[in-house]
Nucleic acid binder design. Structure first.
Lengths: 158, 158
DNA sequence: CTAACTGCAAATTCTTTGCATACTC
DNA sequence: GAGTATGCAAAGAATTTGCAGTTAG
């Protein structure tokens, strides 16, 4: 959890407000609490982590509302959802870092981020060839990290 | 469903047999039936489709066994598992096509395959920089296809 | 004031597990 | 023959849904 600058937070809230208005959705406190929780997160959170964290904090909120807020935030392009292999969605802020992709350790589930401009080129080329209007992409690299404290290293393949 | 050549099927079976032996696992008819069903599939199947197809056909099999077989086949690197956004795993043969990635239509869920050699380069560079031993990758491009019969096109973003 | 949202619990979906029976090796 | 795999049904995990009560606009 690293706190955002007040200015940054205001920008994100403003964007959310205008998106909600535009879609005729309500500005509820719960939705902003979930938004802030995601933007205060370094790395990736899942829905349950958010629920537990907010429940423990002074913002009581139900799981259903967390999921609802996440879907609204996805619709507004304020958060990004990832599926890193194991079928539990992870979320991250859409407007914090520059565009990046992920490197996932198969042993300890650690996630690293990296950038490579060539992905943009690939995307454009493929869009052109297949006549697709591409909205987003996800490049996930799976492997084994070499952190000394990496867990479950034992599971070695053939 | 496009039938494999007998020769190709034999190669795949042989690979599976040797892998099972190597791991001290049994060669059960069910495992080979699931293997063949996946290799007879053009495109991507999920576990339930396999179950239904095999149930309908002359090979009665339980869901639990389908899942078990899938996990064994994954371990043996004979099939590849994908998560295309919606958290239901899809499977495809590992030894039919050359290495490829996927283009997914957000409206009709259609999946196209494409190849780009630069991904290999990116993978090697990232492995080097982050000192990761990369085993596999998945590059998914999400967007809107332009097929005239694309369903659900209506859902337009802002 | 009223339609949309929240909270709760129940329902759904996908996958795994436990246990008795069946079958490989 | 020993131990692993299968089949069934039940359990589990993640997410969605239905509904009564609450609240934003």
């Amino acid at each position: 959890m690293l706190p955002l600058s007040q200015k940054r937070r205001e920008e994100v809230h403003e964007r959310f407000r205008s998106c909600l208005k535009h879609r005729g959705l309500r500005q509820t406190p719960e939705r902003f609490v979930v938004l802030d929780a995601i933007y205060d997160t370094s790395g990736h959170v899942d829905a349950d982590e958010l629920y537990v964290r907010l429940k423990q904090g002074r913002h009581s909120i139900s799981r259903a509302t967390v999921y609802n807020a996440l879907n609204v935030l996805l619709d507004c392009d304020l958060v990004i959802r990832h599926q890193f292999g194991n079928a539990q969605a992870k979320y991250e802020p859409a407007y914090r870092y520059r565009q990046h992709d992920h490197l996932i350790c198969l042993d300890c589930q650690h996630v690293l981020e990296f950038c490579d401009p060539r992905i943009q080129n690939i995307q454009e080329l493929v869009a052109d060839i297949y006549r697709f209007d591409i909205k987003s992409h996800a490049l996930n690299l799976y492997g084994h990290c070499r952190r000394p404290d990496c867990e479950n290293r034992a599971e070695i393949a053939v």
